[in-house]
Structures are given as C-alpha cells and as structure tokens.
Design a protein around this nucleic acid. Structure first.
Lengths: 140, 140
DNA sequence: AACAATTCCAACTTAAACGATAGGGATTGC
DNA sequence: GCAATCCCTATCGTTTAAGTTGGAATTGTT
C-alpha cells in the first residue's frame, strides 16, 4: 500500500512551481529535477499530465518552463493525485460498478472497511490545497 | 495506491474464522477458500502469517483447521494488515529513520501531507476490530 | 543564421512485486 | 491404512512502476 512516486514527485513539483509563480517566473524541468533530485526525463512525463489537467501552463523555448495554471487555493491534493496515480482508490470495489459485478458482493463483509479507509484518504487529500502547504511551510 | 490482495484476503479469512469460532469449530483452508473464492494455496500462506502472529490457532489432521487465537475485540484491522501487507506506510519516509537519511529531508515540504494521509489510514484500521465488523454485519 | 535552452512526444528497458501454482512432508481421526 | 488436513519451500508468469533514450518542435540570444 504505497503512494506511487508519480504522485509524490508531482506534488513536490507543484510546490516548486507554486513558489516561483508569484513573480510570473517560469521554472524549467531541469531546475525542478535538480532541486528535488528527481530524474528529469521521468519528471517530464509527470508534469505533462499536470499540464493536460490544467494545473500548470507551459512556455517553450529558451527561458521557457512551467507556471501555475490555477490559483494555489484552487488546487487540492486529491485532484493532483487523481491525475497522476493510476489507481487512486485503495481497492477496486470501492467503485460501485465494480462491486456490483463482483462474484462475492452479497457476501463481502469487509467492504465497509475499505470504504472507510478510502474515504479517510480522500478527505485528507481533498482538504489540503497547494496554498495550505505553502502557508504551512512559510510559518516556520 | 492499492491494498494488496494479501491484506484483503486476510481480513476476509479472519471474518470467516471469527464467525465459526463461537462454537469452537475449526475451519479448514479449503472451506474458507471456497466460501471466499480465493486460491487455497495462496490463502494458506496468508493464514500462516496470521498464525505466527497469534491471531489464529490451528489444529492439524482430519477435522483440523483454524480458529481465532484472540477475542474478536482484541483483533484490530491495523494489526492484521501490518502482518500481511509488506508496506503498511503510504510512503517510506513516514518512518523517521528513513526520513533522516533522505537526501532531501530538510527541503521536503510535502512530508506533512504524507504523514496526515498515513495517520488517517491508521486511525480507521486501528479503530476497527473484528468484533465491530461482525456486529455490523449482524445488524442487517 | 547558428546555437542553446527548452517543451513535447513516444518507444523501450529494467527491476520488483503480486498473485498464484506445484509438490511434498507431517499430523491426526476414522 | 487412508483421507483430510496443516505446514513449508521453491518456482513461475504477468503486470506495473520507474526510469532511460532519442529525437522533433519551439523560442530567445548572440
């Protein structure tokens, strides 16, 4: 039961981009990769997903890079994770349609537990915005 | 981000065993596997871990099988999962020692989020006992 | 015009984990 | 003796995650 590195790296990249977006400064993949010690090739693919989802905007060519596509308070961790993690639910049968098709579904006494776990994770992620994280780090 | 089938199957097996333990009835692996539609070979290895951890006791030979090793109220889901899931933490650096050794640890602004997610999961699992699950299913 | 810095895109590789199977030994009740 | 069981270990196939590579397109700078 692990968050994939995609999700982790994506969140960390978003934090770096957010910290530079105040002054309209575009950050390059190489800069982010160097700062966060992440393979830049891999990071590229991650950020490309974030771009498609509208969380960042890009500028090509020299002095290009990435900048936030929305306000930090409008970007929550659940949305980021949903785009990056291939499986956001802790178990497939959280999804009702999957559950209905399950061989065992009238008999599965454990499902309520999975739903609770899943809800707990979602709540934390949904209730944490990029703004929260930045603010929290500036406090110290 | 998925619970492995080990954890899922283990919890479901424990529920079956618990339901039979009232009347001191031993349940065989084959019975559990058939009821839950799980490969019996695979289930065997899972239950063997549960046995080593003391959650179930076994009896060999004909009419043998498994029975609870503790009272349902003394078995919580976190303990079961800890034994079965190879990685119970949602991210390695939840562990302080791993965190201290991390290249990036003075710089990692996302860790608080991982800690929160992890805590949320642990809370649900720790606050749900086998007794809770059985009771919850009898209600209906 | 040349060049360097960048985003963009797709194919490939490698390593690990998951889920499962197979085979056989030991114990017990009938 | 035999069938039902637990017990143990080795092996296997598939999928997925993680990361690499190579190259095209765009843009600013010199």
């Amino acid at each position: 039961m692990k968050l994939s590195t995609k999700g982790q790296y994506g969140v960390r990249a978003m934090i770096v981009i957010a910290e530079n977006s105040n002054n309209d400064k575009y950050v390059s993949i190489n800069d982010i990769a160097a700062k966060e010690k992440i393979s830049s090739g891999y990071l590229e693919r991650i950020i490309s997903k974030l771009k498609k989802a509208g969380f960042v905007k890009s500028e090509r060519g020299a002095n290009g890079g990435y900048i936030l596509g929305k306000k930090p308070k409008d970007i929550n961790m659940f949305d980021i994770m949903s785009v990056l993690e291939d499986n956001i639910d802790v178990i497939e049968c959280v999804d009702v349609q999957v559950f209905e098709k399950c061989d065992n579904h009238c008999n599965c006494k454990a499902r309520k537990l999975w739903l609770k776990v899943n809800e707990a994770v979602e709540n934390v992620l949904k209730n944490t915005t990029l703004e929260d994280i930045i603010a929290d780090n500036n406090k110290k």
